[in-house]
């Protein structure tokens, strides 16, 4: 850096540094242009994805898609009602496990013992869990649930998803609790409330909208994931009968049908992509909307 500085020092203030200042201006413009070009370049694939998903997903869009079962290989007609239901069921199971665990741990970290070694350990582990590949959640659920019950099941898929979204819920809930002004707690203690009453009747209700934002983001994440349910819930051509049965999901349906040589199945995969992207986007928007009134 120093060498360029001394080099340009000569021309910075000299009257006859005209050529250099033209060069400097040109370089300035050129780099700005390059930056614009690179940014626009990333828009191309994004638009391509969005346009193709809408274009290829729309033709089959009808009520049948949501109410009928996938067709047999080589056949036309049908839909993926069972996969939509399966995705919703597994996301529901994952919430049952991860929401209480995540919120309780966040309360401990932020309210009961914010500076203890245990709290920093929880934060550290949650950070590490966010970095674990999603397929590892599937491998773990396979080892812990599928190999013990000897069955691919919606429960195993739900547990895999629960591990995936736990850190999201925990870390957003902790931020939500952190956002509650300290004066609220002081006021509550001031009128004689116990710590328990303060947390459950003052702090938690105040933080609830922000916590729900985190939960909706987690739902969006879980609904879109394939790897954790791929070999835990497997897939099914039929409606879900119980949570201990192999279960279809939208994402696995896309993966399975994308590589089939049947045109109709590939169209179904595109339609499923459209529905899945819509579902994920809806959850994301919902997450923003829930939190929005708090900001005003």
């Amino acid at each position: 850096m120093t060498s360029t500085a001394t080099h340009s020092d000569k021309n910075f203030f000299s009257a006859d540094g005209k050529g250099t200042s033209v060069f400097r201006l040109f370089r300035n413009r050129f780099l700005t242009g390059l930056c614009v070009a690179l940014s626009l370049l990333t828009l191309v694939p994004l638009f391509s994805i969005v346009i193709l998903v809408i274009q290829n997903g729309c033709p089959l869009l009808s009520a049948n898609l949501f109410t009928q079962l996938p067709p047999a290989p080589g056949m036309d007609g049908g839909g993926f009602g069972n996969a939509i239901l399966g995705t919703l069921v597994m996301v529901g199971i994952s919430l049952v496990f991860s929401v209480p665990l995540g919120i309780l741990a966040a309360i401990f970290v932020n309210e009961y013992a914010p500076v203890s070694w245990l709290a920093s350990a929880v934060r550290f582990v949650a950070k590490l869990l966010t970095g674990i590949p999603s397929i590892i959640c599937g491998v773990f659920a396979f080892a812990a649930v599928v190999m013990t019950t000897h069955k691919f099941s919606a429960l195993a898929g739900g547990i895999a998803l629960a591990i995936l979204i736990l850190p999201t819920i925990l870390l957003t809930a902790e931020q939500a609790l952190l956002g509650v002004p300290y004066a609220f707690r002081e006021a509550s203690f001031g009128v004689g409330a116990t710590p328990f009453q303060t947390i459950w009747r003052i702090v938690l209700p105040e933080a609830m909208p922000a916590i729900m934002t985190g939960v909706m983001l987690a739902v969006a994440r879980a609904a879109g994931e394939t790897a954790p349910v791929l070999f835990t819930a497997l897939f099914s051509q039929n409606w879900i009968k119980g949570i201990m049965e192999p279960t279809a999901s939208l994402s696995v349906l896309i993966y399975n049908f994308a590589s089939l040589p049947y045109a109709y199945h590939i169209k179904l995969a595109w339609s499923a992509s459209l529905v899945l992207v819509a579902l994920v986007t809806l959850s994301n928007i919902l997450a923003q909307v829930i939190f929005a009134p708090k900001h005003r």
């Binding site: 990333t42 994004l46 391509s48 994805i49 193709l52 998903v53 969006a220 609904a223 879109g224 994931e225 394939t226 790897a227 994402s251 896309i254 993966y255 994308a258 995969a269 595109w270 992509s273 899945l276 992207v277 994920v280 986007t281 994301n284």
Partner: peptide, 12 residues
């Protein structure tokens, strides 16, 4: 870009 599921990237 971050919200699009991995499997949709694959299909695309």
């Amino acid at each position: 870009l971050a919200a699009i599921p991995s499997v949709v990237y694959g299909l695309w």
